[in-house]
């Protein structure tokens, strides 16, 4: 973390320099206009100053060309900044496909992180340098917000739904992690560290965990809830087959389509009547209360792991040994 006086947080992600370049550009534009107006009004104050209360100014009423000019110029500049910043924004909100997955839950007043290999941590997030990382998170109580200034990323944690941030760290080190959405008594204490490590050190850190992988935990929950009795592998069950489902687009009973992502799976488990796949009856019960946030990420990781399509060997055969590990 930083010491001494500086005017920029560290640039520790691939997004950081892009955000900063945009920032510097807007600083330059705004400084120009601020100086222009300031110099003019101060100059006028000296140039046209009078102590005679009976003096009058020149009879100038306005100028249409000037009005159009100073409407058009800021407008064009605004459009340019808008286009640039929207471009940066879409890169901030869209994680790359191959990003490594981490899950998180915010609750008053701590951040809990879970890695697909099963490693858990509180108020600390270990990530490897140079690899895109996607954090999918929610809140167990009120609004929170996961904010990592050195990466220039931030998103609200909203109870009942998933949010994501993503980043590719560019230098090893420790960086601040803050809750940026006011959440009560210890809001200012809901802070932590992101620890960016070399790939090998990160692997060694992962190996210190005794936990089974999230997908394996999810599979155990899946079976204890008897999900497989309806979600048959051959597609003939009362619910859709789950193999190869994640990331695909499904046709819904209401005529629209949905991309199967973390949010859709979450909704289907807790609120299954919302978006039913076409051809199936809305008979799935809600698992609200039966599946907590930890269980949910296990189920999602497990369903993600079922990539190979229907298999006669059953679900467990297609479970990759190292879900979440790099290809």
């Amino acid at each position: 973390m930083q010491s001494g006086i500086s005017f920029l947080p560290e640039q520790a992600s691939t997004l950081a320099p892009r955000v900063d370049n945009l920032y510097f550009f807007i600083v330059a534009v705004t400084a120009f206009f601020a100086l222009l107006v300031t110099v003019l009004v101060v100059y006028f104050a000296f140039k046209y100053h009078t102590d005679d209360p009976y003096a009058v100014g020149a009879p100038i009423h306005g100028s249409i060309p000037l009005e159009l000019f100073w409407t058009a110029v800021p407008f064009v500049i605004a459009i340019f900044i808008f286009a640039w910043s929207t471009n940066v924004y879409f890169d901030i909100v869209r994680p790359p496909d191959q990003a490594m997955q981490v899950y998180s839950v915010g609750k008053r007043w701590m951040w809990k992180f879970q890695h697909p290999s099963g490693q858990r941590e509180i108020n600390e997030l270990h990530v490897p340098v140079g690899r895109p990382v996607k954090v999918t998170f929610t809140s167990e109580d009120v609004l929170h917000d996961l904010f990592i200034p050195a990466f220039r990323v931030k998103a609200d944690a909203i109870p009942g739904r998933y949010s994501t941030i993503w980043f590719t760290a560019t230098q090893t080190g420790e960086y601040h992690l803050f809750c940026a959405e006011y959440c009560g008594t210890k809001h200012a204490g809901m802070i932590g560290r992101v620890i960016v490590m070399e790939e090998t050190a990160y692997q060694a850190w992962l190996d210190t965990s005794q936990e089974s992988s999230l997908a394996a935990q999810g599979q155990a929950l899946y079976e204890s809830l008897s999900c497989q009795s309806c979600h048959l592998n051959d597609g003939n069950g009362r619910g859709p087959a789950l193999h190869g489902l994640f990331g695909s687009e499904v046709q819904l009973a209401n005529g629209t389509t949905a991309t199967v992502d973390e949010g859709y799976l979450r909704e289907s488990i807790l609120n299954s009547q919302m978006r039913v796949v076409a051809g199936y009856n809305p008979i799935m019960p809600t698992f609200q209360g039966l599946v907590d946030e930890d269980g949910m990420v296990g189920l999602i990781e497990y369903i993600k792991s079922l990539r190979t399509g229907p298999s006669s060997e059953g679900a467990s055969a297609s479970l990759p040994a190292e879900a979440g590990e790099p290809e």
Binding site: V41, Y48, T50, D51, D52, P53, A58, I60, P74, A78
Partner: peptide, 26 residues
Amino acid sequence: TFAVAIPSAVKTFNWTATLYRGAIWF
């Protein structure tokens, strides 16, 4: 939001222009 910034900019420029060749009593 960028659009709503424009009328504020227009006001500021007009105020500045009002000072031009005024008899400024400070």
